[in-house]
Design a protein around this nucleic acid. Structure first.
Length: 525
RNA sequence: GUCCCUUUCGUCUAGAGGCCUAGGACACCGGGUUUUCAUCCCGGCAACACGGGUUCGAAUCCCGUAGGGGAUGCCA
């Protein structure tokens, strides 16, 4: 049977990198196993879901090249099927209302008393009860108070199914209640019992378990679980039932999601069973945390997929980086093509500890992808980040010069010194570079030579060298002051090529402007 | 509080009892190339959370402790 996975976001704002990483892992899994990757929009929270968020989401998926194989399902349109499923569950005795079932009360899913194959016994358990508490057995579950540290009362309420074979004891040690002979009465007739004087209970502890594709064997005792609401009192289905129903509808075979869902998974497995469907396989992937090591919240402004796009990250680089967060191919490869990732991806290789998002590594990865772009492609991208006021004819030459120095496209805004005359100098640095009189003298001399002589790559270079010799400046020490004067920045491309693009007049004007300031004193800024 | 998960350089990771004197990458620091910048090359710094076991041998298996995260909703 072919694998079918899905990405099921709720459209309540911008798409977060943590979410999109879930999509990436699902997509990679589907492509690796030649299965289907489906998209489902969980828009049941009408208050917070917006069309704008849906559009943003689809845009992000397209940008990252995450394609889906079947038409999108909108959860809000599936409501009838959710309620029909609840109806069937009620008939089968898996769902119930309290208070005799009048309208306006929520519908609960009863964690089944028996017949569940995902449940196993782990032996007999005993719980001592707090003397001041009352043990209650109700159709919704069992409530009691245990003894915590320092005699503290610890409240407890759990589903009935957690207490098979339960016996209740009084102070004399006599059994005063056995659940097996009363369970029908409790469930079918909504009968409740109350034992103020109970001192302890014994029962068969059972746990629900599954084998997680990433985390391995997972289990949780049933006496720590509660019946859950599946239909609100306003008649709308909640996440759990909608999610499971839609997974059944879409015939999902593998659910790969964030590990904030593991607790839900225990419930969902029970729901699948109660609806008579085979349970999908689960894989819970670790969350990503921010630079402070804390979970990303929607407040972390930098964490939206759209922001990365706007700042000038390549989708392939972001995709590659995100795929490597919590997963590795097992060898030393990091920069990988999409096909290589598909080929190497397995859930077994996904880590189960949270990974910290590192912008440095992303930047480096992005730089790697930029470096290998064909010049024409780079130019196309560069145009998007260039100031529209810059003369377009010069951009290709500047782009060619700067490509190997670009890590993120938003750095392109710093190319302005190639195009317009007004440079905002870092006066402190300028003052430092032009502190020595011989540098000032040499700069003036060089500028004069360029004004009156040739201005080519060769002559620029030659003048620089000659002037250094003439003014007894150590080799190479004139380059930096000149660079700073003509461009205003300490880094950049080769100086001769840079000056050529800036142009003779502007270079010379800038140098003299700096020399004037050197004479009259650099202003502060 | 209770339950569940998790822990290898600052960060992402490799590691399936001996191949580990713990490997790679980013970041950082030095050096080389470039008479300047970036690339590039070479080198350096730097980790098995802690404590007990099991074993001839533990990063690896078991138990405990501590830190981190999650869940405990008529949110998804």
């Amino acid at each position: 049977m072919e694998n079918r996975v899905r990405f099921a976001p709720s459209p309540t704002g911008q798409v977060h990198i943590g979410n999109i990483r879930t999509a990436i892992f699902n997509w990679l899994f589907a492509r690796h196993t030649q299965g289907k990757f489906l998209l489902r929009i969980e828009d049941t929270d009408i208050e917070r879901s917006t069309q704008e968020a849906i559009d943003t989401l689809l845009e992000c998926l397209e940008w990252l090249g995450i394609d889906y194989d079947e038409p999108i399902i909108y959860q809000s349109q599936m409501r009838d099927s959710h309620l029909a499923a609840v109806e069937r569950m009620t008939e089968a005795g898996h769902a119930y209302k309290v208070d005799g079932g009048e309208a306006g009360s929520p519908i609960y899913f009863r964690i089944p008393w028996d017949g569940m194959e995902a449940i196993r016994s782990v032996g007999e358990a005993t719980i001592e009860l707090h003397p001041e508490g009352t043990l209650e057995i109700t159709p919704r579950g069992i409530n009691f108070i245990t003894i915590g540290k320092g005699d503290k009362q610890v409240e407890n309420s759990s589903c009935l199914a957690g207490f098979r074979q339960m016996k209740v004891y009084d102070a004399s040690g006599a059994v005063i209640f056995e659940i097996e002979s009363n369970i029908q009465d409790v469930i079918e007739n909504q009968r409740a019992f109350s034992f103020p004087g109970a001192t302890k209970i014994t029962f068969e502890r059972r746990e629900i378990f599954f084998r997680d594709l990433i985390k391995g064997e997972m289990s949780k005792p049933l006496d720590n679980m509660k019946d859950l609401i599946i239909v609100r009192s306003d008649g709308t289905p909640v996440f759990h039932i909608a999610n499971v129903c839609d997974d059944i509808t879409q015939e999902i075979t593998h659910i790969v999601r964030g590990d904030d869902h593991v607790e839900n998974t225990y419930r969902h497995i029970l729901l699948f069973h109660a609806m008579g469907h085979q349970v999908p396989q689960y894989g819970h992937m670790p969350m990503i945390v921010n630079a402070a090591g804390k979970p990303f919240s929607k407040r972390d402004g930098d964490a939206f997929v759209g922001d990365f796009r706007e700042k000038g990250y390549l989708s392939e680089a972001l995709y590659n980086y995100l795929a490597l967060l919590g997963w590795s191919p097992g060898d030393d490869r990091e920069k990988m093509t999409r096909d290589e990732m598909i080929e190497a991806f397995t859930l077994e290789r996904v880590k189960s500890a949270p990974a910290q998002f590192d912008i440095n590594k992303l930047n480096n990865m992005n730089g790697l992808y930029i470096a290998e772009m064909p010049a024409d492609d780079f130019l196309v991208q560069a145009k998007l980040f260039a100031d529209p006021a810059w003369p377009a004819d010069k951009l290709p030459q500047v782009a060619a010069l700067m490509q190997s120095r670009t890590k993120i496209f938003n750095q392109i805004s710093s190319w302005s010194y190639f195009f317009d005359g007004d440079i905002e100098y870092d006066m402190k640095n300028l003052a430092k570079q032009y502190k020595k009189p011989e540098i000032c003298k040499a700069a003036a001399m060089a500028a004069e030579k360029w004004r009156n002589g040739e201005f080519t790559a060769e002559s620029i270079h030659q003048v620089l060298e000659e002037t250094e010799t003439a003014c007894e400046i150590p080799h190479g020490k004139l380059f930096q002051p000149i660079r700073l004067a003509v461009s205003g920045v300490a880094g950049g491309a080769e100086l001769d090529a840079t000056m050529l693009l800036i142009g003779r007049d502007r270079c010379i004007n800038n140098i003299f402007r700096v020399l004037e300031m050197a004479q009259s004193g650099f202003p502060e800024n």
